[in-house]
Design a binder for these strands. Sequence first.
DNA 1: ACCTGAACACCGTTCAAGT
DNA 2: ACCTGAACACCGTTCAAGT
Lengths: 218, 218
Amino acid sequence: MSAASTSSRDRIIEASIAILDGSGEDGLTFRALSERLATGPGAIYWHVPNKGDLLTAACDAIIARAMNAPLVGATPQAIIRTLALGMFDAIDAHPWVGSALTRAPGQLPMVRILERIGRQVSALGVPDEEQWATVGALLNYILGVGAQNAANGQLGRTRGIDRSDFLDAVATTWSQLDPDAYAFTRSMAAHLRGHDDRRDFLAGIDLILSGIEASRRL
Amino acid sequence: MSAASTSSRDRIIEASIAILDGSGEDGLTFRALSERLATGPGAIYWHVPNKGDLLTAACDAIIARAMNAPLVGATPQAIIRTLALGMFDAIDAHPWVGSALTRAPGQLPMVRILERIGRQVSALGVPDEEQWATVGALLNYILGVGAQNAANGQLGRTRGIDRSDFLDAVATTWSQLDPDAYAFTRSMAAHLRGHDDRRDFLAGIDLILSGIEASRRL
DNA sequence: ACCTGAACACCGTTCAAGT
DNA sequence: ACCTGAACACCGTTCAAGT
């Protein structure tokens, strides 16, 4: 627990996060990593078993910070909203976390989120046999948004276009779709441009929360 | 529209689906693909611009079949349930579709789902300015489950363990977590073994649907 | 117009050899 | 105990050359 000392493994993970933030998932390479750490590719394998585990460890470092933030909120609902927003902001700042999360099912990063949200679902009074499905709904929704954010970030980097240019391009494509076959999608093209991701994310959380409350009243 | 003729591109996509189903995402290689098609790797590039687009095209073929199935259901809610289950079953049969979907945001596969679900959300009477967030909640939830299914399938293949062995391993790990720090996760370990993914998936859809209905009543 | 297959510039991972 | 760096077995993609 000596906060001062930093192990080789910690340095590897920190360097990985820096590379992932700067160059995305494709940028994280054992060669790039070893260059940054002024060592050989083989050295890293002494501390980390493979690339998948390295990505999960980097992901876990981010999730741990987000989930250990102090929880303000009077009600379980308010705390769930705070936790969900914490996840959104973490993934927004580190888009690669969104895809890293889904690739490590049942592992530590996911468990941290499961635990935090699960306790609030329990506090909400959801009966035991419904808790798993209820937490799952919240978790999978957060995961879906996260994965989508990750994909957008990745696309933006590889094609060198920023977010609003990308949304513009999608909106244009949508508005040129067949009016009969894609009436709804066309009607959404306009919304696409100006919409606030964070606000929409929270609206989804609120929808699930009110669904939980409605179920409780039956 | 001559259904009898099959273009080279169609043959490439069919072969890709066969490889993806049999060997997973890592198995889809331009070399493996060209071998199956009895041609050279370069030939494929005449019909498909790159691997990403190939994956999206294969994904779209699966999604198109699922979304074009005849819709039975008296109410918009019932139709949404049918559509969602269609997605679940498609991803269950082709796990790679789950991750391919998230990697093609705003593109055709996603638009097909958006359109089908969006129309029902509209039929539900959700006001225009809430439709985007509402469809997004359903879509992102489905996406999250799909991505998780894809990851499970991938993990199962690379580590050569089947689903129930994997769940067993996760349940064992969870039950050995710290009792104070991970009380909720530990209590879920038992549920993990016997749970029915498809039923839980539908429970999540119903939670969102009842959340939508509750919002409408305000 | 479409196909061939060698070649290029990379990967993750291993492993003998060092300190 | 930990690091080095060459080597192995792959990738996606390109492109001159063919038909």
